[in-house]
Design a binder for these strands. Structure first.
Lengths: 154, 154
DNA sequence: AATCTTTCGTAGGTGCACTGACGATACATG
DNA sequence: CATGTATCGTCAGTGCACCTACGAAAGATT
């Protein structure tokens, strides 16, 4: 038998980490608004009127997924979606007052939740944790767009 | 405007980390067999004849999710599923020869993939990375089963 | 033996995430 | 100006992950 200890597999741990966060979010932040939905709201607070695809890029969602998330937020009246008059392909997004309200209201709860989430780690470990995850995630992100073949590499 | 930097939110990073891993798995390990599916195969290599619910517990999947994953693996002929004669509620799972073959074949690729995944980190950082993620995930796992109320806590 | 209570699996519903394909629009080249 | 290419959004399909609710089976209590 060649069974392996999954506890040493970063991918398996990443999945469990995300499940843990999902659970905590659901109990401590909101049952209606999910974490990806909040990320979209947040991106639109920072840059109102952004087009749908760019919002997806900002928060790490592909075109299919951002379309669904935006659709749900629109159905709940948290954002408006209009065609760009300058470029008929684009959909421009903008939060409604209700969307702004929801975003503001969740801020406090998210801060509390993050504290609980990271509570098992000492303060300096928390900083390391953030740094390491970001570096790994960013690196793999780079493999996604395999360096435009403007000049074919040898 | 009260927009926040998501790069400091562990939950958001956890999601991006998992997406990164998904992408890498899909390109470097397998397009047919997913990471959760492999986890199930692995659990059954270690303990053949385990019941469905326990397998789910071992790999971190709830009853609904493990049912779907098992169903897919069964449809592909990678495992057999029989009712426990001793306990008619349980489904006992066992890998087929093909299931064993798939598990064995993926092992090498997964090792390679893990190296690439963790490549952005130095060797000592990789160990810290694993340790920190596991501690955070395990702690949140504990919040799931809120300590049986055998003796009501004060 | 008859009645709770718990446990296991399943079914239905929601939501994220990816792929591949398609139509519409925009842009670039000839 | 016409053709070709790239981009944006959408649609269909697959898969993970959760919740609630339900029936079947097992165990505990009376």
């Amino acid at each position: 038998m060649a069974a392996v200890d999954l506890a040493t597999h970063p991918g398996h741990l990443a999945r469990r980490l995300q499940q843990a966060h999902y659970l905590l979010w659901n109990t401590m932040v909101s049952e209606e608004t999910t974490s990806p939905q909040y990320a979209v709201l947040n991106a639109l607070v920072a840059e109102p009127g952004l087009d749908q695809r760019t919002v997806g890029e900002r928060v790490g969602l592909d075109r299919s997924t951002i379309a669904e998330v935006v659709s749900r937020l629109g159905r709940r009246g948290l954002l408006d979606k209009v065609r760009d008059p300058q470029d008929g392909r684009r959909s421009l997004l903008r939060l409604t007052d209700e969307g702004l309200r929801v975003h503001r209201r969740l801020g406090v709860r998210i801060a509390r939740m993050n504290q609980v989430f990271l509570a098992p780690l000492a303060a300096d470990e928390q900083a390391v944790f953030i740094d390491l995850i970001r570096r790994v995630a960013d690196a793999a992100e780079g493999l996604r767009n395999p360096a435009e073949p403007t000049a074919a590499p040898g």
